[in-house]
């Protein structure tokens, strides 16, 4: 990539973009992992490409590109920073999804929908309790009306109460 040296003669060797440095390392690790996973797949030959050729060739290319990104992180300051991680958002949004996945079949939409709304609302500091509860009831009614009755999807409604 770039060729600019800050001080001619004695290039300074330090990471200028941590985002690119970590990004490059992640990419290299992912590429090595993919290479390892695909190691036993038959490579085949060019007139009969085996299942292993594409994954390995692509993983190799990815590794090289990741390495180039690491090199570039020493030369260019890059465009962004990683910044803080939205742990609160990450945890509650994922929790909402997981809870939906496990509750939709046994408990049905009547329970899964409001719980999903409630949990995901927790990820935002600005949420107000009364507003969330009212909104989760409203969204449950809307989603049941839309998905169950208008579009007639075979999604369980409340098996424990209604049997479907």
């Amino acid at each position: 990539m770039g060729t600019s040296n800050p001080t001619p003669g004695r290039p300074e060797l330090s990471v200028k973009s941590w985002q690119d440095f970590i990004g490059g390392c992640t990419v290299v690790v992912a590429a090595v992992f993919a290479l390892w996973l695909g190691w036993k797949l038959p490579f085949g030959s060019f007139d009969g490409i085996g299942p292993g050729m594409m994954p390995r060739a692509v993983a190799l290319l990815l590794g090289i590109l990741g390495f180039l990104l690491i090199l570039a992180s020493f030369l260019n300051s890059g465009e962004g920073a990683i910044g803080s991680i939205a742990w609160r958002g990450l945890i509650f949004v994922l929790a909402a999804i997981v809870v939906f996945a496990f509750s939709v079949r046994p408990l049905g939409l009547l329970v899964a929908a409001p719980i999903t709304i409630l949990i995901s609302s927790l990820s935002n500091r600005e949420s107000k309790p009364v507003e969330i509860i009212a909104f989760s009831i409203a969204m449950t009614v809307v989603s049941i009306a839309l998905f169950k009755f208008v579009l007639q999807l075979p999604i369980p409604l409340a098996p424990w109460l209604l049997g479907y």
Binding site: A96, I97, T116, S120, S127, S143, I155
Partner: peptide, 14 residues
Amino acid sequence: YRILFPSIILFCCI
């Protein structure tokens, strides 16, 4: 946005 995004998540799941 605080009432928008939970609905997006719910619709994605459904």
